[in-house]
Design a protein around this nucleic acid. Structure first.
Lengths: 338, 338
DNA sequence: TCTGGCACTCGGCCCGGGTGAGTGCCAGGA
DNA sequence: TCCTGGCACTCACCCGGGCCGAGTGCCAGA
């Protein structure tokens, strides 16, 4: 295994490279860090680190830069999570407290995270799958035209139009509304199908068709809307990516716009705790030169969605992880209050 | 005024420059276009065009490139709007027909427009100001907690939580709901304040406070949500912008993320017909090297919102204008159907 | 008014030398 | 055994000079 000092050298290399964005050499290292040994010794350590694949040289006679494997070791063994300063915490709280509805909460979170980390922020809307029903509303827009409105405990609202074959009496509508709500309010979305299964039978012959239609639209909505939504911001920070722009940035922008891709990415992360995926650890090929830091957040103990940032592999991991974790906590609090 | 031929030369310069992205010289021009004159003559014309500020030289002994003023003349006098091919039209219609709700319509429109023009697409959600009310719903979530849901004729839904000081009987709630709807359904949002002004007076003393609260939240929602929303896509196309990346692209990304800025931009455009703002004609300084093509769209005769694209000043104006106009028409149709 | 000719300009490219950061290796010392 | 100073070597980068060619402006003649 690598000696203590070699790990220390790796840490120093990562820190310097993240700071300067330039390959770091042995002399510069000994000058900037108190390693207690000479450049020559560091060179030997570097040779060993390179042998093991933790660092690499862009070309002969250049300094070293960390590889994905090197960052991985750094994140796992060498880096802590840097807590935010109190002013930063206060700023977060103040900023999030001003939110008026769910869209606003998510929007503010994205902006906050992007600004704090100076990277691209990704925030998933609270998932319907893990949410519960706050209310189901049925409105008659016209004699044979209904609107279904679904409200979740996280404040999300979904609506659907329903065209019925036959008109539906206002009293029956009120009846259906009441029965539907008494069954599903407070229940999880995943349980709804079972809970409403036998509902049509309890209605009169004439209304059964319409009731079935309404239920099928409701179930459809549940399935469709289980596809999660997300919001992305801070893409301007991509310009701080590196020198060789167009080629690096383009696939990243494309991946970010494909929400399906991003959702898959979030889905692959652990449900609880922080996940860091570095460079080629990301399956999507547009993101192989980026690192993704994600964490779950929720209104209670349980995570209802995830948020995170996408940045260059040469990012400030401790700082980023600290910011991501802190933001997730505060968003959780805000959601719990509303 | 400029002679016919000089205009022709300008047109040729714009076309070639847009195609090649390189300064165009007199010889190349005569070779690629049937101008019927020699390079020397063209040089004289170019000198005149430069004198008038329509074209410029990046440096001595280089070809000419159009200035903003040159593009302006091109768009106003020389360029038509290129209609789309029938396959393209069919593709648009097919793609948009699959949309299930308003979010989906807007989302698909953005993607479509971005793909068609290979530029950044901006689509504004149908405006509340110019919309009419389809339905107002009031739900009792708890004895002293209501939810207000506002549904527009374009399918947009807004909701707000209301905390009341005193509980509100279900019958009063139904009463309020009915009276509210009978007054505002089918009316324009801007007319709502007047229409509900005297509503509290018609209620019993006990309920007046709550009714007032509800109304004030309703009016607040109208004001707040008159701030329009928009969706943006195709930012990956920014990478095709030019050679000198980071500096060009960064302010554009920043402007695009500031929805307020973009909304202002759309607001400055004409309500009907197509608007093209070229380079420095855009007030926001992040966008002075871009051109913005916008057009209003709506479910009926009247425009309810705008959409458009943001691209480099050296864009294919006829093609872009054709695509923007066509998409706007089809979106209008889709909205009218729903 | 257009044309061909001509001299001129200047950015881009290639080449070659100098510079310096950084390396690998080795022999000597703790 | 491990660390250190010394040394030769490599190679990216910078800089200046020279060549090339596209493109220009001007002018005299048709």
């Amino acid at each position: 295994m690598l000696s203590e000092r070699r790990l220390e050298v790796l840490r120093a290399i990562v820190q310097d490279y993240v700071g300067t964005e330039e390959p770091v050499g042995s002399k510069a290292l000994t000058e900037r860090h108190q390693l207690g040994v000479s450049p020559a010794t560091v060179r030997n350590d570097m040779a060993a680190l390179e042998e093991e694949g933790f660092i690499a040289q862009p070309h002969t006679s250049a300094g070293r830069i960390p590889t994905d494997k090197g960052y991985r070791l750094f994140v796992d063994k060498l880096a802590g999570v840097k807590p935010l300063s109190s002013p930063e915490r206060r700023a977060i709280q103040n900023f999030l407290d001003g939110a008026v509805d769910l869209d606003d909460v998510v929007g503010r979170t994205v902006r906050l995270l992007a600004q704090l980390t100076r990277q691209v922020a990704v925030v998933q809307y609270p998932s319907l799958t893990r949410s519960t029903v706050r209310h189901v509303e049925l409105l008659a827009l016209a004699p044979a035209r209904l609107m279904l409105v679904l409200i979740t405990d996280t404040g999300r609202v979904e609506q659907r139009l329903i065209d019925c074959q036959t008109p539906f009496a206002e009293t029956s509508l009120a009846d259906l509304r009441a029965r539907l709500n008494s069954r599903v309010v407070g229940r999880r979305f995943t349980d709804v199908p079972q809970l409403v299964q036998d509902l049509p039978e309890s209605f009169e012959q004439d209304d059964r068709g319409t009731v079935s239609t309404v239920l099928s639209v409701l179930l459809e909505t549940l399935v469709e809307e289980t596809e999660e939504r997300l919001m992305i911001g801070g893409t301007a920070n991509l310009t701080r990516f590196g020198h060789d722009f167009p080629l690096t940035i383009r696939p990243v922008l494309e991946a970010l716009e494909e929400h399906v891709v991003m959702l898959k990415l979030l889905g692959e992360a652990k449900d609880s705790g922080m996940t860091v995926r570095i460079g080629h650890e990301n399956a999507h090929e547009g993101l192989t030169s980026t690192s993704v830091v994600t964490v779950g957040y929720g209104s209670g103990d349980e995570a209802v969605a995830k948020l995170g940032v996408v940045g260059p592999t040469r990012m400030d991991y401790p700082g980023t992880m600290g910011a991501v974790r802190a933001v997730a906590r505060y968003v959780g609090q805000i959601l719990a209050e509303s």
